[in-house]
Nucleic acid binder design. Structure first.
Lengths: 239, 239
DNA sequence: CGCGCTCTTGACTAGGGTCAAGTGCAGTGG
DNA sequence: CCACTGCACTTGACCCTAGTCAAGAGCGCG
C-alpha cells in the first residue's frame, strides 16, 4: 500500500472499508495534526475537559473509562492502533469519558476543524469515518448486551474474540492469537466484573483447553467452541 | 416558534442545541421523507436488515433492542418524540438492532441521501445532528456504567430521572413527573434485570415515599434524595 | 532485601435470578 | 349481566453467580 505520512495503520483501517484513492489519501493528509508520545498510565483526555481534540492512536493500547462516586472504574472501550480517541465527544460541551494510555502510545491530533473541508474534497472519506464511528457504536451495543445477558465466561470469551478480530484487522495478531498488553484488572473493568472472578474464569478456560491468556499473550486453542460459548458474530466488526 | 412542516418536535430539539435560523429550518425541510403511522408492537427496522432508512420519531414511544440466542431481549435505548431511529446503523452493512414501536407512533423517514447537501447549505445543522448523535452516545455510556456499577435501585432511579429529563426537553412531562407508557417488563429489559425484581424495587421506592410509577405515570416525590441515590448528573443530556 | 505490583486461590456472603402462585383489570362472547 | 381469557403486575420461597474479604505466590525494581 501507499506510504502515507498520516498513519499507515489508520489509512489501512479506512481502506478496509473501501479502497481509498490517492486523492482521498491526500485529503486525509490535510487533517493531520502533531504527533505525540505518551507514556503508560497518562491521561490523553479527561472527563469534564472542555474543547478537547480527537486523536488517532498510532501505536500502543489505550482505553476510555468513567469513574463512579465510589471510585470504581468502568472501562467503556479498549482502543488499539488505528482507533480514534474522543471523536464522539468533541460535539459535547465537555468530554464524558477519560482516555488513558494503557501502554506507551503514540497519538496524532486530528484537525477536526479541517475535517469538513476534507469531506467536501473526498466525500467517501466521510463515509469511511462514519463507518468507523458506527462500528464503535455497534461494539458498545455488543458490550451492553454482553454485560446484561451473558454470564462471566461468555463475556470474557466474547471480549477476547472481539479484540482478536480487531487486532487482526489492523495487522496485529495471527491465526491463533494476539499480543494483549492488558492486565487482568483492566480486562475485568471492561467486563464489569472483579479481577478475582476474571482470574477464576481464565483458569477454567485454561483447564478446559479452550484458551490461554498469559504473559501478555492470548492463545486460542479451540476457536470453534469458543465462538459457540460466546455467541460471537463477527458481522458487526466487518464491512 | 416557527411552525415547521418537518416535525415541530424535532426542530424544537435541535433548537435546544442552538437556535436555528429560518434558512437552517428550510434546509432541514429538504431531508423530509414521507410520514407513516405505525401501531404498537410493530417493527420499524429489524436486526440484519440491509439498507434501511433512518427515521424521526414524531409521536409515541419506541425502543431499540437486540435478542440473544436464548430469546432474552435487551433494550439498548428507549426513544421518545424528537429522537432519531437507526441513524447510527445506516453506515453498517445491516442494522445491528431491531427498532420497535412501544405505543402507536408516527415516524418520518429521513432522506439520508440529501443530508450531506443540507449540511453544505447549513453547516450548523451538521453540528446539531452530531450533537444529537453524541448525546445518544453519552446516554449509552451512562447505561453501560449503570449496569456495571450501580445496583438495581440506583439503576432504576437513574433511568427514570433520565427519561424525565429527556421528556421535559421536548415539552413532555412537568415539574414533578411525566407520562410513561412503558410496561414494567420493558423498563426491566432496558435495565438488564427481571420484571419481577424491578417490581420489588418500585415497591421499595413507593414505600419509601420517593417515587410512584403507576398507571403509565411517574411521579417524583423527593427529587433531591432520588438524584443522590442514582448519582444522577444531568450534564450529559444538556447543551 | 524489602516494597509493591499482578496474579492466584479459598471461604463466606448477598444481590438478584428462578420458579410458582395469585391478584386485578380490560376485553369478548354468551 | 356475568363467565372466561389474557395480560400486567405482585408477592413469596429458594438458589446460584459473582462479589468481598483474606492470604499467599511470583516477580521486577530501587
Amino acid at each position: 500500500m501507499l506510504a502515507s505520512n498520516l498513519s499507515d495503520i489508520f489509512a489501512r483501517k479506512l481502506n478496509s472499508y473501501a479502497a481509498l484513492t490517492p486523492a482521498e489519501l491526500a485529503a486525509l493528509e490535510t487533517v493531520r495534526g502533531p504527533r505525540t508520545l505518551i507514556e503508560a498510565d497518562k491521561e490523553i483526555i479527561y472527563e469534564g475537559q472542555a474543547g478537547h481534540s480527537a486523536y488517532i492512536l498510532c501505536s500502543g493500547w489505550a482505553c476510555s473509562y468513567k469513574r463512579l462516586a465510589d471510585g470504581t472504574r468502568h472501562i467503556i472501550e479498549i482502543q488499539m492502533p488505528g482507533d480514534i480517541l474522543g471523536l464522539r465527544s468533541v460535539m459535547l460541551p465537555s468530554a464524558n469519558l477519560t482516555f488513558e494510555a494503557l501502554t506507551e502510545i503514540e497519538v496524532m491530533k486530528i484537525r477536526t476543524d479541517r475535517l469538513l473541508d476534507a469531506f467536501k474534497a473526498a466525500p467517501r472519506l466521510a463515509g469511511a469515518i462514519l463507518w468507523v464511528a458506527s462500528r464503535d457504536d455497534a461494539m458498545m451495543v455488543e458490550h451492553l448486551v454482553s454485560i446484561c445477558g451473558r454470564d462471566a465466561m461468555q463475556r470474557t470469551v466474547h471480549l477476547l474474540l472481539e479484540l482478536w478480530t480487531r487486532a487482526r484487522l489492523v495487522g496485529l495478531g495471527n491465526a491463533d492469537g494476539f499480543e494483549c498488553p492488558l492486565s487482568q484488572s483492566v480486562v475485568a473493568d471492561a467486563l464489569g466484573m472483579t479481577a478475582i472472578h476474571l482470574n477464576r474464569v481464565l483458569r477454567q478456560l485454561r483447564e478446559a483447553g479452550l484458551l490461554v491468556f498469559r504473559d501478555g499473550h492470548v492463545h486460542f486453542q479451540d476457536q470453534e467452541r469458543l465462538s459457540e460459548i460466546a455467541g460471537f458474530d463477527f458481522g458487526y466488526l466487518q464491512r
